[in-house]
Simulated assay, not measured.
Amino acid sequence: MPLTSAPVMFIGHGSPRWALSPGDAAARLQEYSVFFNQVKALLVISPHWITRGMQLTASPEPETIHDFGGFEEALYQLQYPVAGNPDLARHIQALLQDQGTEVSLNEQRGLDHGAWVPLLHMLPDHRIPVIQLSLDAASTPESLVVLGARLKRLRNEGVAIIASGSLTHNLYHIGDEHGSPLDYVVRFQDWVRSRVIERDIPALSKPHLNSDDFSAAHPSAEHYLPLLIAMGASSEADQLSVLESPVLYKALSMESYGWR
């Protein structure tokens, strides 16, 4: 067992082009990577894998999925050749099912860009095995907090939990990569940060009732929801790090959080 529990993170993964244009957001992840020295495996959740019922990847060598279109060819050549861990996937399946959460194994699924792009920047040597957990389409904010709490014990086994998403994700408002952020983006990012610092999980679970900017920030909620898993998997005893990063494309918050 590691001397300290493995970290939990919420990572803002932005556009797929972030893989080619690292900038400050990638630098913040690289700085935080020092806390992964004793980590044995990563469990990653991304809004780009939504299923009916929860699934875990169980491939020994998960492929790098280029689940996007319309970008330059160089982006499709990038690979994140990391190992999986089928035995650990079965262990996580049993752990969740013992707590009443049904989950199946998927031996064909690889890693989507919500998983591999941030890892490409944070852990470029791809030395730590990765398992991805899907988002169940039937999830509620409350059930995702509970899911995070059920995953929390994995941290004491050296498994880091990484929830990938975006604090703001309105693709209708995308602009120049380094254009000035829209006002509602800054307001909502600031609101989330304040609630995360206060560990105000009830407010974060009902952002549509507690922030006037939620509907503009998230025409659909899937990129916000992984934050709730991270809140459930972290605890008051953890040290929170706010990884402040510039807003990209005027509408995509790149802010991330780490708990250790």
Score class of each variant (00 low, 15 high):
L111D: 08
F188S: 00
R187Y: 03
V196P: 08
V185Q: 04
R195H: 13
G179I: 13
G158L: 07
R127K: 12
R187T: 08
D136G: 06
G114L: 07
S194M: 04
I162G: 00
S166E: 13
H173E: 15
L111C: 10
V117A: 07
D190V: 01
S164P: 01
A138F: 08
V117F: 05
V185K: 01
Y172H: 15
I128P: 03
G114M: 02
R127D: 11
R109I: 06
G158D: 10
D125S: 15
D112V: 01
A115E: 12
L182Q: 14
L144N: 02
S164G: 09
V130G: 12
R187S: 12
P181H: 10
I174A: 15
P181V: 05
G158C: 06
N170P: 12
A115V: 14
R193L: 13
L147H: 01
V196R: 04
S139Y: 01
R127I: 01
L151P: 09
V185N: 05
F188N: 01
H178V: 11
N106H: 06
A138D: 15
S164D: 04
L151F: 08
R155L: 13
S194D: 15
Q132P: 07
W191Y: 11
V103H: 00
H126W: 08
V159Q: 12
R155C: 13
L105E: 06
G165R: 05
P118R: 01
